[in-house]
Design a protein around this nucleic acid. Structure first.
Lengths: 329, 329
DNA sequence: ATGAAAGCGCTAACAA
DNA sequence: TTGTTAGCGCTTTCAT
């Protein structure tokens, strides 16, 4: 049979309360009692049952992670940052993939609730309205990483997309770019709005106006990018900015297949900077999002909420860098 | 306050036992009672507390996943397959990264045990001896995916590495290759042995013998591959087989930087076939491991153990394909 | 078909 | 400093 706190108490000739105290580092235990108990714990190879603990204390030391697709480098990089910090604070993470499907998202959320997680991190993708309401009703600590939701009043970690895109677009425009096309993935509307705003600002600062027909919509994968190339050519854009690295590489390769010279005839900039960027030739220019850090900071932020520490800033903005490589002039 | 099974019982004017029965689909409930209870559940928006359930039933419907690094495409592809099947069977997964560090691995395992997971999947990497013993002692269902451990008597899902490498090597040798170098990552010794066996068999079938100095050791990342190129050149190998796609691409790019013509002067074959293979030019030839399927089948296998179904074959071998693309003749 | 009651293994008042 | 005891919210015999 499995050894319980009761066995330890009996062997150490103390009450289970005392064992519980040494387990939880409660200072109100005489050092010699503590030692005695620890010895028995060691001898019996006793390990506390986290489930029982969770039931009694209403804390499970697990946090739920809702993520579109863990096999996507963008999200898994965020997730890795999360997990490292979670581990540091002795939390474990339950991951659920949603493919950005609202139904799956909701199921994931309800599943996590029933598992009594202490908090939830929402990674990337679009948070749908209904889930958002569920979250609010649950009164659970929630942090959103790498995306924005509609009313931006939930704790979050991001970069300043608006500013990043503005900076990039300005530079292209300064360099004489004719027309910038922007390829969005399946991100949140809010995030998209920031980006379009950035684009518009850059244009207007150059006394031009950005036509929304240059906003292209597609999947975040290589194939989607490749398929989009035709549209880009028809639009006669000479710069493409994409959300995902994969899509950027799809565009890039397709363009090269058409003997378009990169970056002279077409410049490509992605917005992720996963390690894919170094694996193509020419190397992909990219807005470097500190993905790992976003995840890590997000988890740290969540621990603050879970421990009811005071949080100075609920909406953390992390710095970005624009890495100009071979696909830009 | 949160609504409990007791509230439902009271409102429905039945005992909590009956509520529990309808919750668990126990047939011994009069249809009209069932309906009454279900109505109340709906009305109160009652959701069972999985922690309490876990404590009472000794089943948590969560499985632990021990993985070297979730931000690695190889592992995250496995993980995605896992999670999809887990979801299908109503399990949730707790993921812990180990970086192949034995200490982290052990901590991860102990953490999962204390969380009372119903089973564990070990994904890739090397399973260290001590953890292996812990696992055996725990009597928990465990499945190993995408790697082999020493005594191959644990349930596992893999491809036939030996055969795959033999086939690939034979083809190179048939094509007049002078010397094949093999680049291993940080995989299990057992797996490595299969691969070296395959290599040796291929050589001996060509009346040659494989010299172990052509086995190169490095990390699984791009940079490691790039750094290895020098060694490969010194060894005068004209074929490189690597475990990871990243490393292969590193070798590839470095070789191209040295104006080595691919595949004429150097052929490169990786062993993963993650979606990176299409993102380099020339496209990377690769032994296609059905990563998603390995994860999915592994999870399915685990559910069988957890439900105490009979398992016909504990060591599943999935088919592989060799995709010859631009980096091989 | 339904209910009563005893746990599951722990935490957290409250007493002492 | 330590022990007693009452739960936490559910499942699961055992009666009825």
């Amino acid at each position: 049979m499995t050894v319980t706190i009761y066995d330890v108490a009996r062997e150490a000739k103390v009450s289970m309360a005392t064992v519980s105290r040494v387990l939880n580092g409660n200072p109100n235990v005489k050092p010699e009692t503590r030692k005695k108990v620890k010895d028995v714990i060691e001898r019996l190879d006793y390990r506390p049952n986290a489930v029982a603990r969770g039931l009694a204390s209403k804390k499970t030391t697990t946090v739920g992670v809702i993520i579109p697709d863990i096999s996507n480098l963008y999200y898994s990089s965020l997730a890795r940052g999360l997990d490292d910090i979670a581990e540091m604070y002795n939390y474990q993470i339950i991951i659920t993939n949603t493919d950005n499907d609202p139904d799956k998202e909701r199921d994931a959320f309800l599943g996590l609730i029933s598992k009594q997680v202490d908090g939830i991190v929402f990674l990337g993708g679009a948070l749908n309205e209904e889930t958002l309401n569920d979250i609010k009703k649950s009164h659970l600590p929630v942090v959103i990483c790498g995306t924005s939701e509609k009313d931006e009043n939930m704790p979050s970690v991001n970069i300043d997309y608006n500013e990043a895109i503005k900076e990039a677009a300005s530079k292209f425009l300064d360099g004489g770019a004719e027309q910038i096309a922007f390829v969005k993935g399946s991100y949140s509307e809010q995030l998209e709005r920031h980006i379009v705003d950035g684009l518009k600002t850059a244009y207007s600062e150059h006394d031009r106006s950005f036509d929304e027909k240059y906003i292209l919509s597609t999947g975040a994968d290589y194939q989607s990018g490749a398929e989009l190339y035709e549209t880009i050519r028809e639009l006669e854009a000479d710069v493409v900015i994409t959300m995902s690295d994969d899509a950027a590489i799809g565009v890039l390769h397709k363009a090269m297949d058409h003997d378009i010279s990169i970056p002279d005839q077409l410049q490509v900039l992605s917005c992720s900077n996963t390690r894919l960027v170094n694996m193509v030739r020419p190397q992909l220019s990219s807005i470097a999002l500190p993905l790992y850090d976003i995840g890590a900071v997000g988890m740290r932020l969540l621990t603050k909420y879970m421990n009811e520490e005071t949080v100075e800033e609920a909406n953390v903005i992390l710095p970005y860098r624009i890495e100009y490589r071979g696909t830009t002039k």
